[in-house]
Nucleic acid binder design. Structure first.
Length: 874
RNA sequence: GCAGGGGUAGCCAAGUGGUCAACGGCGCAGGGUUUAGGACCCUGUCUCACAGGAGUUCGCCGGUUCGAAUCCGGUCCCCUGCACCA
C-alpha cells in the first residue's frame, strides 16, 4: 500500500463518518442537481473508463458544492437485467443474490475513488420498494391511454429469449448479444411514445445537449412533413393513399408502387386470373421476407398488379406496382413514383420501361429525354395550370388545389414507433396484469402492489422462468374473484431508468414514487453525465416519461436533463477498455502504484472530457510527479504574507480555473491548478493563503490530497466543504494596506478590476507590462475607456512600450457598441506604426510616441525575472 | 445518401483575430543527484545562427484583414450515428 493510498483511505473514512456529503432538500438554497447515469452492477471491478466518468462527475459536484450550491449528487443501481439472470442459469445463483453481491462490490469501489455521493439516497431498481412504483406508474400510464396492449410484428431475440424494442435493435441485431433478430407476430404491451413525437423533437431546441445526440434523436423520431394524396383506383370504389414530401412533382407521377404487405394486394388478386394472382402473392411474400431479414434490398424489383390508379392531377390512369423496396411500416405503405425527379424511381422506370416525364426544370423549359433524374427544386413544366411556378411554392398551391377536391391533405409522418416494453424474462419488474377467463385482462389494483418476483422459479435457460412459478402465476381475479393467471412478462429495464432521477429527490417515500413539490424543486437535472450509447434509448424514454408525468399532473417541468455531457471512451491498444477485451487497467493497480488521486487527475487532465483517450502507462507518471508536488506543499516553510507576484498568480489561477470549470473544460482547469502548484513548489517559502487556495482549487480533482494539505496547513477539515476561493474584488480585504496590488489577472478579468477600482479607491492598482494591451482592449470593450484610457495614456511607460493598432480604435469610434477585436502588434512595420500613431492621437486626443524596443533585454530574461509594475491607476 | 464531429510539431493534445514558434504530457538528447535496476531534479527538443536574431510551419488551394492555426469560400481525407423514410 502506498503512502498516498493510506492517506486516501483515511479521508474516505472521515468523510463517511461525518456524513460530509449528505444533502437536505432546502427550497431556499440554490440547488444544483448533478447526476451520472446509474450503472448496471456487473460484478466486475472498475477500470479507467469508469473512473474517468466518475471523476468527471465528482469534479463538477465538488466544484458546485464549494461554490455554495446545495448539490444533489446521488448514486444508485440499475439492477434489473439479463446478465444477472444468465448468471443464475450458468452458476446456479439467484439473480437477487448475484446482483446484491455486485452492488456491494461496486459501491466499495466507488468509495475507494473518493466520490462525494450522498449515499443516504442510494436506490436499487430491483428493490420491491422501488419497482412497486414502476408498477404504479404503469397503471397510471395505462389509465391515461399511454400504455396499451396490441398485436404487432415484433423483434424477437432468439438468444435472449425475449422481444426487444425497436431502439434495442441495431442493424438487425440484438443490442446486447448481436444475435440476428427474428420477426414474430405477438400480443405485447406498448408505451405510446408516439403521442409525444412532436414535443420530443421540438423541445430539443431548449436543452443544452451535444448536437450529435440531438441529431440522433431527431433522426430517430424522423418527423417528415408532406402531403397525403388520394389516388382513386380505376374501375373500383377503392382508393390508394400515398404520402409524399414532393407533391410539386405530381404531374410527373407515371406509376405508383405499394408495399408487399399492402392490403390492396388482396384486391389485385381478386381482380385477376388465378395464375397471375399466384405470381403476385409469391412476389409479395418473397419481398416481405427480404424486407424483414435483410438490411436493404440490393435489387429493386417490382411487379404489375393489374390495377390502375388515376393520377388526381393529370387524370391519367397509371399502373400500380408492388415493389420490394416500399415499406409497409412507413407513411401509408405506398409511394407515388416520379421517375424524372427521383433516382430510384428513375432506375425502376428504366428497368420496367415506364414513362419518364419531366415536370421540373432548372432552365424553365422541358429538356426531354432525361439522361438522369433531377431531384432538386426548380420551375414547373408540363404541369397544367401550375407550369411556370417555382416548385417550392407549388408544394403549397398544389396541395391546396387537390385539397379543395378532397384529393389531398397536409400530413406529418414519423419514423418513431411505440415502445414495446414486454420482456419474457425473470429479472425485471413484473407487469401488474392478470388474465381472467371471464373478465379478460385486468390490471392489479394499486393497493395490491407490489407484485413481487417469486423465489420458487427454476432457471433452465429455456423460456421465461416466471412461468415455472406456481405461486406466482396462480392468483384470483380482482374483479370477479375467480381464479386467474398473472402476466408473466416483465418490463423492459429502461422503464426503471425512465424516472429514477425523480426517486433520488425523495428516495424513502412509501406513499408515492416521488413528491411533486420536491421533484419540482430539484429537477431538471442541471448536469447529466453518461455515455452516448443511450442516445435513442434511455434518453428518449426519460424525456417521454417526464412529459407524460407532467401532463398527468405530477410534474411541472418538461425536460428531465437540462444539460447533457457525453464523456469520451478510454482506449488501450486502440480499442475501448473493457473486461471482455482483456485490456483493462484496474482501479486496484492505480491505487497501489500511484494512489487514486493520481488516476483521477490524469484521466481528467489528459484531454477534453468528451474526447476519447488512449491510455499510456508512462503518461501517468508525469501526473504522479505533479501530485507529489501538491502533497509536498504542506512540508515547505510557509509565510502569512502573500507577495504581489504570488497574489497575482493566485488570482489568475482562480479566475482561470473558475472559467474553465464553467465551460466544462476540466482538462484545462486541472492543468491550471497543477501549474499553480508547480509555481508554489518552486518558491523558497510558500505564502499560506496561496497554498490554501491551491488546496481548494485541487479539491474537485484530487480531493484526498486537497484535504490532507488543507489540514496540514493548519485548517479544520473539510476542505471539501469550504468556500471556493474568490478572485480579486471579493478576495481583497478593504483594509488591505499594501502599497501596490500587482495584477496580472486583469487579462481575463477586467470587469473585476473596474469593480475593484470603484470599490477600493485607496488601493493603487498596478498592471503588469505584459498585460497592458489586453487591459486596454478590454477597457475599451466594456465602455470604461474615457477615464481609464486617459489615465493609461498619461502614463509615460505605457506610451513608450507599446505600439498600437488603430483599427480597433476606429471601429470603436464608428460603432461604440462593438467590441473591438484588435490592438497591439509588436512587430509592426514602420509605416503602419506611423499611421496608427496618428490614429491613436486622433481618437483619444493623446500624444503617442512609438519606440521599438531596442534595449538588449532578451525576451527570455524578461520572462525569467519578476515583471515590473508599469502602470498605476489612481 | 442524410445528419453530426474532426484534420496542430516524433506521438497524445491545448489553442476560435495580435501576450503564437504555438500550454501541457509522453518520447528523445544533455547535465545533476542517487543507484543493483529504477526513481527524482534541471536544461534542451521546427530549420539556420555562438548569440542578438532570422526563416519556414497548424490537411490542401484561394479570399477577407495592417495582422489568420483561429474568420469566409472551395477542395481532399478521417471518424460517428441513421440509413430502402417516399
Amino acid at each position: 500500500m502506498s503512502d498516498f493510498q493510506e492517506i486516501e483511505r483515511k479521508w474516505q473514512q472521515r468523510w463517511e463518518d461525518a456524513e460530509a456529503f449528505t444533502v437536505e432538500t432546502d427550497t431556499s438554497a440554490t440547488k444544483f442537481y448533478n447526476l451520472e447515469m446509474f450503472p448496471y452492477p456487473s460484478g466486475y471491478g472498475l477500470h479507467m473508463g469508469h473512473i474517468r466518468n466518475y471523476a468527471i462527475g465528482d469534479a463538477i459536484a465538488r466544484y458546485k458544492r464549494l461554490q455554495g450550491y446545495n448539490v444533489l449528487y446521488p448514486m444508485g443501481w440499475d439492477a434489473f437485467g439479463l446478465p444477472a439472470e444468465n448468471a443464475a442459469i450458468k452458476h446456479d445463483i439467484y439473480p437477487a443474490e448475484h446482483t446484491y453481491n455486485a452492488i456491494a462490490q461496486l459501491k466499495s469501489s466507488m468509495e475507494r475513488i473518493g466520490l462525494s455521493y450522498d449515499w443516504s439516497r442510494e436506490i436499487a431498481t430491483c428493490d420491491p420498494a422501488y419497482y412497486k412504483w414502476n408498477q404504479w406508474l404503469f397503471l397510471q400510464l395505462y389509465k391515461n391511454g399511454l400504455i396499451y396492449r396490441d398485436t404487432a410484428t415484433i423483434n424477437w431475440c432468439p438468444s435472449c429469449h425475449t422481444v426487444l424494442a425497436n431502439e434495442q435493435v441495431e442493424q438487425g441485431q440484438c443490442w446486447r448479444c448481436d444475435s440476428e433478430i427474428e420477426m414474430q407476430k405477438l400480443e405485447q404491451w406498448f408505451v405510446k411514445t408516439t403521442a409525444y413525437a412532436d414535443e420530443l423533437v421540438d423541445d430539443l431546441e431548449h436543452i443544452d445537449w451535444p448536437e450529435r445526440i440531438k441529431a440522433m434523436q431527431r433522426n430517430w423520431i424522423g418527423r417528415s412533413e408532406g402531403t397525403v394524396v388520394i389516388f382513386p383506383i380505376v374501375d373500383t370504389a377503392a382508393q390508394l393513399d400515398v404520402f409524399t414530401t414532393r407533391i410539386d412533382t405530381i404531374f410527373g407521377c407515371t406509376y405508383v408502387a405499394i408495399a408487399p404487405d399492402h392490403p390492396l394486394i388482396e384486391t389485385a388478386q381478386e381482380q385477376t386470373d388465378k395464375q397471375t394472382a399466384q405470381k403476385i402473392r409469391q412476389f409479395a411474400e418473397t419481398a416481405l421476407k427480404e424486407q424483414r431479414f435483410e438490411k436493404e434490398t440490393t435489387d429493386k424489383q417490382g411487379m404489375f398488379t393489374g390495377l390502375y390508379a388515376r393520377n388526381p392531377a393529370t387524370q391519367e390512369a397509371i399502373p400500380i406496382y408492388v415493389a420490394n423496396f416500399v415499406l409497409g411500416t412507413y407513411g401509408s405503405g405506398a409511394i407515388m413514383a416520379v421517375p424524372a425527379h427521383d433516382e430510384r424511381d428513375f432506375a425502376f422506370a428504366t428497368a420496367y420501361d415506364l414513362p419518364i416525364r419531366q415536370v421540373i426544370s432548372q432552365e424553365g423549359e422541358s429538356q426531354e429525354p432525361l439522361q438522369e433524374s433531377y431531384t432538386g427544386y426548380g420551375t414547373l413544366v408540363q404541369s397544367g395550370q401550375f407550369s411556370g411556378q417555382e416548385s417550392v411554392t407549388a408544394i403549397d398551391t398544389i396541395t391546396d388545389w387537390l385539397a379543395e377536391q378532397n384529393l389531398a391533405y397536409h400530413s406529418v409522418q414519423y419514423k418513431l414507433k411505440d415502445w414495446l416494453i414486454s420482456r419474457q424474462r425473470y429479472w425485471g419488474t413484473p407487469i401488474p396484469a392478470i388474465y381472467c377467463d371471464r373478465c379478460g385482462i385486468v390490471l392489479v389494483p394499486e393497493e395490491q402492489l407490489p407484485v413481487e418476483l417469486p423465489d420458487d422459479v427454476s432457471f433452465t435457460g429455456e423460456g421465461n422462468p416466471l412461468e415455472t412459478s406456481e405461486t406466482f402465476i396462480k392468483t384470483t381475479c380482482p374483479h370477479c374473484g375467480q381464479s386467474a393467471q398473472r402476466e408473466t412478462d416483465t418490463m423492459d429495464t429502461f422503464f426503471d431508468s425512465s424516472w429514477y432521477f425523480l426517486r433520488y429527490c425523495d428516495p424513502h417515500n412509501t406513499q408515492q414514487p416521488f413528491d411533486t413539490d420536491i421533484s419540482n424543486h430539484w429537477l431538471p437535472v442541471d448536469q447529466y453525465i453518461g455515455g452516448a450509447e443511450h442516445a435513442v434509448m434511455h434518453l428518449l424514454y426519460a424525456r417521454f416519461f417526464t412529459k407524460a408525468l407532467r401532463d398527468l399532473g405530477y410534474l411541472s417541468f418538461s425536460e428531465p436533463f437540462q444539460r447533457l455531457f457525453n464523456q469520451g471512451v478510454v482506449h488501450k491498444d486502440g480499442v475501448s477498455m473493457s473486461k471482455s477485451k482483456g485490456n483493462v487497467i484496474s482501479q486496484e493497480h492505480i491505487e497501489e502504484q500511484f494512489g487514486i488521486d493520481t488516476g483521477r487527475l490524469y484521466l481528467v487532465s489528459v484531454a477534453s472530457p468528451e474526447k476519447d483517450i488512449e491510455w499510456d502507462d508512462s503518461d501517468i507518471k508525469g501526473t504522479y510527479r505533479s501530485l507529489k508536488k501538491l502533497y509536498s506543499l504542506a512540508d515547505k516553510p510557509t509565510t502569512h504574507q502573500n507577495d504581489d507576484k504570488t497574489l497575482s498568480k493566485q488570482h489568475k489561477a482562480i479566475a482561470d480555473v473558475t472559467e474553465y470549470m464553467e465551460q466544462f473544460q476540466l482538462n484545462k482547469a486541472v492543468n491550471t491548478v497543477l501549474s499553480f502548484v508547480d509555481y508554489l513548489y518552486n518558491l523558497e517559502t510558500v505564502p499560506l493563503p496561496a497554498a490554501e487556495a491551491a488546496a481548494l482549487l485541487a479539491n474537485p480533482f484530487a480531493p484526498h490530497a486537497s484535504e490532507e494539505l488543507w489540514e496540514k496547513l493548519g485548517n479544520t477539515p473539510f476542505a471539501s466543504l469550504q468556500q471556493w476561493p474568490s478572485c480579486l474584488s471579493e478576495y481583497i480585504d478593504p483594509t488591505y494596506e499594501a502599497e501596490d496590488l500587482f495584477i496580472e489577472t486583469v487579462y481575463r478579468d477586467i470587469r473585476e478590476v473596474s469593480k475593484l477600482v470603484q470599490k477600493y479607491s485607496h488601493i493603487k492598482i498596478i498592471v503588469a507590462a505584459e498585460w497592458r494591451h489586453a487591459l486596454y482592449r478590454q477597457i475599451v470593450s466594456i465602455g470604461r475607456q474615457d477615464d481609464l484610457i486617459q489615465q493609461l495614456m498619461a502614463h509615460e511607460q505605457f506610451r513608450q512600450h507599446h505600439d498600437f493598432t488603430v483599427k480597433a480604435a476606429q471601429r470603436y469610434q464608428d460603432n461604440p457598441g462593438a467590441i473591438p477585436t484588435t490592438l497591439i502588434g509588436q512587430k509592426r512595420e514602420q509605416q503602419v506604426l506611423e499611421r496608427e500613431k496618428a490614429r491613436i492621437a486622433d481618437t483619444f486626443g493623446a500624444t503617442v510616441s512609438l519606440c521599438k524596443e531596442e534595449d538588449a533585454e532578451s525576451k527570455k530574461k524578461e520572462r525569467a525575472e519578476p515583471m515590473k509594475p508599469a502602470i498605476v491607476l489612481r
